[in-house]
Design a binder for these strands. Structure first.
Lengths: 301, 301
DNA sequence: CAGCATCGATAGGCAATGCCTATCGCGTCC
DNA sequence: GGACGCGATAGGCATTGCCTATCGATGCTG
């Protein structure tokens, strides 16, 4: 049984006339007659009582016609929905973002994204790198904004912008008197985030240390870490987009001598079909952050 | 778009594996791959993200799959319903019956019909010949029990049984003394039914008259006519099946010399597809009334 | 009543397509 | 690194949906 045949059946019911029904289906009358007869044979049911004057649906046809209408309507719905769906710049895009980036980047890019891609619903999901990649793998996310390189053939990525790190110091810290801070000088009393944050590893690597001093205090968020620095527990590196929040907390920021930083990347499964949406989102974010690295690295926020 | 393709789509969604999905559809894996790809091209939507390890439905596919399931379910319903419907001895049969026959025949044949054709729902419709034929023509009835010949190529018919007429006389009527009554003798004070009843015309024809004496009293039913006869307003002819009702009314019945009567026929549209049901119904009625004419004509009820 | 018009059914031929087997390309696992 | 598993691709074959031409039946009309 074919959807086409069901449409033919509906046309005959509607017109009560094979010739006009065929015309409405854009086929010839003999073709229609043959197809209806084949349908009758397949269902083993006479669908119409034909004379040269009238074509009347049988009781069996009446019983079936409701199901036929529903089936055809659903087929039409499939076509209609897929017409909407075929625009890759429309629909939901589930975007994972690491916690040290989300609260500082999203306020900057949400408005431009809405403006540039009004029918794309960007749905953010905040979690650490590992969890995001797992969700990406499981098709629970469509893409993610990460600050680490991603290896392996499963994923592809695109760098969007460079985000320098800045030295974050208590206001009364000795290093706060300098114009710029050497990364190694921070190593003595460096504080870092809890396990799983990529920023933790990057901070330690930049300062040439393998382990941190956070001690009993677990900084589970960058916000907490900033509070700890402001309270004089130690120093840290923060990504430049968090500069505003750091200064609000009363922290002194200084550019780094070696100008280390991280690269924020858009990551997706290599086979993800809506590349166009990803490209557009990446373009908007990259455009919004254009020139950001130079200004931030110089300490001019 | 084809229902088959939709079934293939469901199979891939269900199995998450082209090979096993193909097997479940009894086709080869390449065929399935090609058909899914063609469906994707037709809908202009990527339905699956394929790797050599996984086959994951896209968000678009998730949006469509509900409609696909409904469409396929309706198609299955069409097949299931038509499987029930293809038994011509099942389902509703709308049967027209003339008023001078229905109240007397139906009690006799309902039980045998139910016994012989348990899944056939015979739905009687009582009206005069002309109205029944009109409804038959309009497909509002499937068949009719008439007592007249039907002409024209539109209808076919089959005689089921002969029903003799009997002379119905008031108990004190002169003719009641005779063993048998000559039709012409009734003509003097004959009463007949209202216009439209075939029995009216047949009664008048049998008695050799063109018009009746019913006068102001309109006998719109055979029951009323019997009451009029019992009350002494005149005589009439009744069909043999009504004999019981006539005797209950206190009417004297006598066989007719010329043994006139009517033939009850099953009538249907020549193109009506469920001939098997008609044949079966006709057989049951004819069987039930077998030998009825002889006994009735002799006056032995 | 003969001729015509209308309508669905049938016949024959052609092109599209669904299906098959064989094979490829890619990725994974021992 | 070679074997295996999976989906994609290629080429050939049979089916089938479609067309035009025509038939047969029915009803109307001059």
């Amino acid at each position: 049984m074919n959807l086409r045949d069901l449409r033919y059946l509906l046309a005959v019911v509607e017109h009560g006339h094979f010739g006009r029904a065929a015309e409405s289906c854009s086929i010839s009358q003999p073709t229609l007659s043959v197809q209806i007869r084949k349908l009758e044979e397949e269902l083993n049911v006479t669908l119409f009582e034909r004379t040269s004057k009238t074509v009347a649906p049988t009781a069996a046809c009446e019983r079936l016609i409701g199901h036929v209408r529903t089936a055809v309507a659903e087929a039409d719905a499939i076509l209609a929905v897929s017409r909407d769906l075929c625009d890759p710049l429309a629909g939901r895009l589930r975007l994972g973002i690491i916690p040290t980036l989300a609260p500082y980047l999203l306020p900057l890019v949400f408005a431009p994204l809405r403006a540039a891609l009004p029918s794309l619903e960007v749905e953010p999901w905040e979690d650490q790198t590992e969890a995001l990649l797992k969700r990406l793998h499981a098709h629970e996310l469509d893409a993610a904004l990460l600050a680490t390189d991603v290896i392996g053939p499963e994923f592809e990525s695109r760098p969007l912008f460079d985000e320098p790190f800045l030295a974050a110091l208590p206001a009364d810290h000795l290093l706060a008197r300098r114009e710029a801070v050497a990364e190694a000088d921070l190593a003595r009393d460096i504080l870092v985030l809890a396990d799983g944050h990529c920023l933790r590893d990057q901070t330690l690597a930049a300062c040439g240390r393998g382990e941190a001093l956070t001690g009993n205090l677990r900084a589970t968020s960058l916000s907490t870490l900033l509070n700890m620095v402001a309270a004089g527990y130690g120093t840290t590196l923060i990504p430049a987009l968090a500069a505003g929040a750091a200064q609000d907390a009363g922290i002194v920021l200084r550019p780094l001598v070696a100008k280390v930083g991280r690269t924020v990347r858009l990551v997706w499964r290599a086979r993800f079909p809506r590349r166009a949406a990803l490209d557009a989102v990446g373009d908007v974010i990259a455009m919004r952050l254009r020139g950001f690295a130079e200004g931030a690295a110089a300490g001019t926020i």
